[in-house]
Amino acid sequence: MVMKRPEIPRKMCPVIFLLDTSGSMDGAPLGAVNRAIENVLPELISMNNDNPDNEIKVAVMTFDYDAKWIVGETELLSPDDVSKSWRDLKATGYTSMGAAFRALNDKLSVSHGFMQRASGSVAPVLFLLSDGEPTDDYKAGLQILQQNNWYKIAVRVAVGYGEANYDILREFTGNEGTVLHTNDTDELKNTIRFVAVTSSRVASQGSSVSPDDPNANPDDNTQTVANALQNQGGNLNAKLDPEDDF
């Protein structure tokens, strides 16, 4: 007799955006961010449709005067639900990056945060966007975050625009290969999409092979994304092929 296979729950892959909406982002830069998110969401929906094992769920935090969850205050949402309710972000205030790190740390928890449905085998994606120096004590917030085990195993990526502090973004990702920077608003839109989609695909595929580095540590998720970004570098406008293996 053939044994009945156990039901294996579809594993959750959290994709969490931390977006700088300080006053300096006003105008074209924030417009690029809004358009980029609008473009990313359909691609995340498509990934979910193609992957029966893992399901991307989204949260979006903005930080200016303080940190605020725009999506995910109570629970992570499907990219489809986010797409239906998305409203353009507004820019105002300072760059409270330390507050953003602390707020993220609070949510990276099994008992009282986003991670109840998470398993130990799928890493979350942490995406940071900023255009300037933090105006609060980012270091203290980052130090707290760096003690969080979900942060440790996460795919950590960052996009810098204009006067963004590269060293701080690199400190957040822990890997210079997952920090991209641009001074051009058109390129900003494409860069956000490129980084968000690539990292989400790597994280949600879980065991994908990097063709250029088959011996890479399978558990170093951020390095896997760094390899994937490097493999596709310089071609931000290209349509990302969903069949690509990273």
Binding site: M1, K4, P6, A118, S121
Partner: peptide, 28 residues
Amino acid sequence: DDCYPLFDNEKHLFKFYRETVINGLLDD
């Protein structure tokens, strides 16, 4: 263990052992 969510991970394991393994043993 990592086939299942971390939250209440044990309950998923109990279910796997009960419904897949033990039922298999008793049936086959």
